[in-house]
Write a protein that binds this DNA or RNA. Sequence first.
DNA 1: GATGAATGAGTATTCATTCAT
DNA 2: TATGAATGAATACTCATTCAT
Lengths: 202, 202, 202, 202
Amino acid sequence: MGVRSDITRQQLLDAAVTVLSERGYARTTTKEIARAAGVSEGTIYRHFTSKQELFRAAFTERSVADVQAITGLPDLAGTGTVRGNLLLLIRMIEDVEANVAPLHAAASSDAELAAALFSESPLADGGNPIMTPLEPLARYLAAEQALGRVRGDIDVAHAAFALFAIPFAGVTTNRLARTAGKRNGVDMAGALEFVLRSVVPE
Amino acid sequence: MGVRSDITRQQLLDAAVTVLSERGYARTTTKEIARAAGVSEGTIYRHFTSKQELFRAAFTERSVADVQAITGLPDLAGTGTVRGNLLLLIRMIEDVEANVAPLHAAASSDAELAAALFSESPLADGGNPIMTPLEPLARYLAAEQALGRVRGDIDVAHAAFALFAIPFAGVTTNRLARTAGKRNGVDMAGALEFVLRSVVPE
Amino acid sequence: MGVRSDITRQQLLDAAVTVLSERGYARTTTKEIARAAGVSEGTIYRHFTSKQELFRAAFTERSVADVQAITGLPDLAGTGTVRGNLLLLIRMIEDVEANVAPLHAAASSDAELAAALFSESPLADGGNPIMTPLEPLARYLAAEQALGRVRGDIDVAHAAFALFAIPFAGVTTNRLARTAGKRNGVDMAGALEFVLRSVVPE
Amino acid sequence: MGVRSDITRQQLLDAAVTVLSERGYARTTTKEIARAAGVSEGTIYRHFTSKQELFRAAFTERSVADVQAITGLPDLAGTGTVRGNLLLLIRMIEDVEANVAPLHAAASSDAELAAALFSESPLADGGNPIMTPLEPLARYLAAEQALGRVRGDIDVAHAAFALFAIPFAGVTTNRLARTAGKRNGVDMAGALEFVLRSVVPE
DNA sequence: GATGAATGAGTATTCATTCAT
DNA sequence: TATGAATGAATACTCATTCAT
């Protein structure tokens, strides 16, 4: 409860995310995390009951702010420009992913980890943050559609997924390319504009 | 190099992919693979020098067919319908991902694994199959554009990425949802149709 | 299943009992057991699923022969002499204890270990071998009493416990004395004769 | 050395004995002791230099009163009844055992622990309390024998051990039975009466 | 005196790999 | 070629002990 304890806890969360990003889940050991945090291995267990609990905490605490911003998206309907609001959302999705992508990746093939990660999630129905943007995005589009700021002839659910897929695929493939040593990223913004033209009138 | 040896080798590759899909990379052990293949653990090392080598072989041999089909896509320009050809491509991307997604996921945060996996790839410049469809897809769209079967006012690179992003994000998020125990998948086809409307004339 | 495997298994059981006797339960580590058996630590787990399972196997296999002999005691009624038969029993109790005393000692204060040890026991109702002699001993005395070879005015249950207590206390206290570096053991035989005088007529 | 310190010290000794009885030696941790005493782990080391030192103190201080009472037994010769005096002794042996049995059990197979526990004992020649009753008991019996209150034809050393063995075996086997989840205890009193009949005249 | 945070050596167990048969 | 037994380094986690406050 002391400030020292809090600092150590944050260092451990940082270290967990860092090592996970650098080494991947299979190579992320408690020893490595402790080394990166500059503490002893035993210290991990003063703050978290298990390695999985550490990851769950990192996952939750790192994504909760972004996720809450995302769920507030529909409230923006009618304000600013549709293009601007959507670009903002896309930026949020990128941020979430940048923080927790390796955890997502690991969880996608590890039911046990997935369960640990997504239990006690701040999201409704124990959801996982990756799917979360879809529904608020669709609701936002519907609200704008009602206001006439989004084309009336589109299915908002389909459009939402097409929009969501771009930053998602962009972040993921860029990450893989970077890890594999490639440098030539993908032009997310251009693709986004391409889809936006089908969304906003004119 | 007898036929029996070949059969065992194929069984091991099958088993590796199967167990990988079920357990995820971090939990896929040689013991489990051997059991799934119906051979002893020692046998793995008669066919592959290491566990990583086994995965590399599985990765390469399982994706090469699909990838070659994908690279042949531009040749289809002018045949069939654009929509049909694109749907075919999407199906291919789904197939590749279904086989090797956990390896992709693991490799995306593990430079060492990525290097091991993507070296000796049949793809140009040691590339990884995931990005591979992008360039043929763009070339296909350009070819169709020249034939007037794709709208002239679109940037084919941007459209290619928007199209590619849908099956990629669909497969990945569906996989994560399934692992996390959710059942409500995403409507890839609808989203795809939505984008296609911006691609094909009318 | 090979003969080599069987030899290793026996070496591990021997080593487990040896180290337990020398070091006590709290200091009996898998590393120490492996060293004493002349194998690697990993080998333990090819033969037993856990350390507790190893102890359970040692416990069961080491005490089953003696225990079966003890349960056969009532059949001796009417043969030989009562004194001779009882001395034989006492010797058996000593043997059992000599084999498994440290396990008994550890189990007496560790419910988890006790559960592990006494489950799947070859003894009726998952019993533990230490109490086992009591009932056959009482039945033997009753049988001899019916034959007039044991005094009619004694309660066989009480006599059985008084007889049983002597080797039990003798073995246990001698063991403690020896471990503590004392050499002067206790005269079990004399105490036994003292009690026997109240059991056999004259 | 204030009174507060003394209280803490006693709480720690109490806690040590309590946890020891509940968990057994191998599972008794300093954390658990501290929790039971309502103090922090660090506090243990203000009062005792090590965990073993704490146990040694508990062992010594908890058994010294009973043991001194026991050593005073010969003085009772001629007072009360022999049966009453012996029953009193038996009760004392039970009390000692109830406090320190798990330590005895652990020490019986751990020379290092035995050395630590029995050094600095208040008992003659660094003895351990368990054997201690034997000699006073024998001397008591001899004294009563001289007074004609104990049968003249018995060897007091043998009788002493036969008497001692009953509460010792009783406490130990009852403890094991209880730990293993059995409820049917042993009838110590009956067995004791049986032996007493050979000790007191008539 | 007391605390709670930190430590690091040690624990049971796993697992990719080797090797005798 | 295939096996299964053996290996030992590595892993997550525990715990007696130390130390700054």
